[in-house]
Design a protein around this nucleic acid. Structure first.
Length: 285
DNA sequence: ATTTTCCCCTGCCGGC
DNA sequence: TGCCGGCAGGGGAAAA
C-alpha cells in the first residue's frame, strides 16, 4: 500500500517527534516482524538508542541512531506506523511492535497482513550495511534519478514498462498506484516493452513519475483503503487519481472509457486512446 | 541475465 | 444469513 509519497509523509511526521529522543523500551509482539532474528534480542538492541534522524530510500524507512546503527522498516502492503503522545487510549488493532520513547510518546507498528518487516542494521561502512544499499536502486525523488539514467535502465529490455518501473532496482519508490498514474501522464501504454520507448517517451515518463510522486507527497499520500499517516490521518491523493481505480469512467484527457487489465501481476488502469499499445509513428512528409 | 510465476498473510467484497 | 472464491497498494525466491 504505502508507496514513496506515503512513506515520505510518515517520515516527515516521525522526524518531528522522534529526532533527538531516546528509545526507552521496545516490544516485539509478532516475531514474524523481525524474522529470522530473536524478538527478545531485537528489543534489547533498541533500548536506550538515541534517534539522530529518519531517512527514506524508496519505500524503506531508516531510523538512524547516534552511534551509526539503524532500524530499517518496510510497511509492505498494509503496514502502519502510528505515533501517539502517550499510550494509545485503546489497544491498536493488529499491533506488531511498539516503541516507547523517553518523553512518554509511543510509536506502534500495526500490520494486519503481516508482510511488513523490521531489520536492525549495523553501523556505517560495514559490508552488511553496504549490501543493504544495493537492495534498492536510486530513489525516485533524488537528483540521481534522471531521464538519461532511466533510459539506460530500459535499454534492450523486453518486459512491460510497468513491470520495469515497479522494479525497485531501476527506480525506488514507485508502486502500483503511481506507476499507473505516471504512465497515463506520459501517454505510454503499461504493456509496452521497456526498450521500445522513444527518447521523448522516456523523458515524458521520467517527468511524469516525479510529477505524480510530488503531487502525492503534497497531499499526504493516497488513502482509498487502509493507508493512514503517523497521526492516523488520511491523505488526499485518491481524489486526484487520473486513471487508477477508474475503469469505466471517462478519461480526464479525451473522455474515452478507461480500461482495466492485469500487467506485471497487478491490477492496471489505462486510457486505450491516450496510451496506445503500438508506438505512434509520425507520418513522414 | 532476464522474465515470469508463485508465495507469504489477512481482510474484505461480491456472488450464489 | 452464510460460505466461498477472488482480489488487494509489497517484495523476494524459485522456476522457466
Amino acid at each position: 500500500m504505502p508507496e514513496l509519497p506515503e512513506v515520505e509523509t510518515i517520515r516527515r511526521q516521525l522526524a518531528q517527534h522522534l529526532a533527538g529522543r531516546t528509545i526507552a523500551g521496545a516490544r516485539v509482539l509478532d516475531p514474524l516482524l523481525v524474522d529470522p532474528e530473536d524478538p527478545r534480542a531485537f528489543e534489547q538492541r533498541l533500548a536506550g538508542r538515541v534517534v539522530r534522524e529518519i531517512r527514506r530510500t524508496g519505500k524503506y524507512l531508516f531510523i538512524e541512531f547516534d552511534d551509526g546503527e539503524a532500524l530499517a522498516l518496510h510497511l509492505r502492503m498494509t503496514g502502519q506506523l502510528l505515533w501517539t503522545p502517550g499510550e494509545p487510549d485503546a489497544p491498536t488493532p493488529y499491533a506488531r511492535a511498539v516503541l516507547g520513547m523517553d518523553d512518554g510518546s509511543v510509536v506502534t507498528f500495526a500490520d494486519p497482513r503481516r508482510f511488513g518487516r523490521a531489520w536492525f542494521l549495523p553501523a556505517g561502512r560495514s559490508a552488511r550495511r553496504r549490501a543493504w544499499g544495493a537492495r534498492t536502486g536510486v530513489d525516485a525523488m533524488s537528483s540521481g534519478f534522471t531521464a538519461r539514467r532511466l533510459g539506460a535502465s530500459l535499454d534492450g529490455r523486453t518486459a512491460a514498462i510497468k513491470a520495469l518501473i515497479l522494479d525497485q532496482r531501476i527506480v525506488a519508490g514507485v508502486g502500483n498506484i503511481y506507476a499507473d498514474e505516471a504512465l497515463f501522464r506520459a501517454r505510454v501504454h503499461p504493456r509496452r516493452p521497456g526498450g521500445s520507448l522513444t527518447q521523448a517517451e522516456v523523458r515524458r515518463l521520467h517527468r511524469a513519475i516525479r510529477d505524480r510522486l510530488r503531487m502525492g507527497i503534497s497531499v499526504g499520500g493516497a488513502s482509498f483503503d487502509r493507508y493512514r499517516d503517523a497521526h492516523g490521518g488520511r491523505g488526499g491523493m485518491q481524489d486526484l487519481f487520473l486513471v487508477h481505480r477508474r475503469q469505466g469512467e471517462p478519461c480526464p484527457r479525451c473522455r474515452t472509457t478507461i480500461e482495466k487489465g492485469v500487467v506485471a501481476q497487478r491490477g492496471t488502469y489505462w486510457c486505450p486512446r491516450c496510451q496506445p499499445q503500438e508506438v505512434q509513428v509520425q507520418a513522414a512528409c
